[in-house]
């Protein structure tokens, strides 16, 4: 049990003393996972809107596929991306493997189906009459969609939080495509795994606590946006 306590003490010490390594690991974690979440939102919003609202053959299968994607195992995504980025792979010449960019790609691939599935669910629960109404009022399809997204903004922000939560906490893909290189691709999760395998349990716990803190920070700001808008309404 003293490991947990020492971990807490270590976390506070690392944060207060401005330990260079811990700060750069934390900064990289935020940078990679926020970028991946942003990309996932850009790709997942239109994808989710399409499978939720458009009428095309195989729509239900597409919806089921997107929903399945919510459970994509990070290790499998990591393996896929690794093989693609290998020197012998199709885009190996870019030298992207074991860089933060590779981690962003893998994490975006994990988060996009999560965003798409939650967006689809959110849009489908908006009253169908709403769209009809908008069209009756003469809104262009784009305006109608924008209005619809506005109507579903609470679940949309929840989708962003779910996506960020999934990628910031995953270790399989980050380890595989990033390689856990010190000072280059080491993030909080892979640092915690390494500290554990080195028997430095307090340090591992400390990284875990920092991870929880930044996840809380990001979710707090998103929640504040979400709730403020609700009140203003």
């Amino acid at each position: 049990m003293d490991v947990l306590f020492n971990g807490l003490v270590d976390a506070i010490r690392l944060l207060l003393t401005g330990d260079q390594d811990s700060w750069s690991i934390t900064a990289l974690t935020l940078r990679v996972s926020l970028t991946a979440t942003a990309i996932a939102l850009l790709l997942g919003l239109p994808l989710g809107a399409t499978v939720a609202l458009a009428r095309f053959p195989g729509r239900r299968i597409a919806l089921a596929a997107v929903n399945t994607g919510m459970g994509l195992p990070p290790v499998v995504v990591g393996l896929f991306v690794t093989v693609l980025l290998w020197r012998s792979g199709p885009v190996g010449g870019l030298g992207l493997l074991y860089t933060p960019t590779a981690m962003v790609i893998a994490q975006a691939a994990i988060a996009t189906p999560i965003v798409a599935a939650l967006v689809a669910a959110a849009l489908q629960q908006v009253d169908p009459d709403f769209r009809v109404q908008m069209q009756a009022l003469g809104a262009t399809p784009i305006r109608a969609l924008a209005a619809l997204l506005g109507e579903a903004r609470l679940p949309l922000l929840a989708a962003a939080m779910a996506a960020f939560g999934a990628v910031v906490s995953e270790v399989g893909a980050a380890q595989m495509v990033g390689g856990n290189l010190a000072g280059q691709t080491r993030v909080l999760t892979t640092a915690a795994v390494l500290a554990t395998s080195r028997g430095q349990f307090s340090l591992a716990i400390a990284f875990g606590i920092i991870l929880l803190l930044i996840a809380f920070g990001v979710n707090l700001s998103l929640t504040l946006i979400q709730q403020r808008q609700t009140v203003m309404r």
Binding site: V32, L34, T101, A147, G150, R153, Q229
Partner: peptide
């Protein structure tokens, strides 16, 4: 309504820009 969207997209764009800059 539009403000919400503006906020969301501004956030996405800001993060994306920041991310790309540093990632590059």
């Amino acid at each position: 309504m539009r403000r919400t969207l503006t906020v969301v997209f501004a956030w996405v764009a800001a993060v994306l820009l920041a991310g790309c800059g540093t990632a590059a």
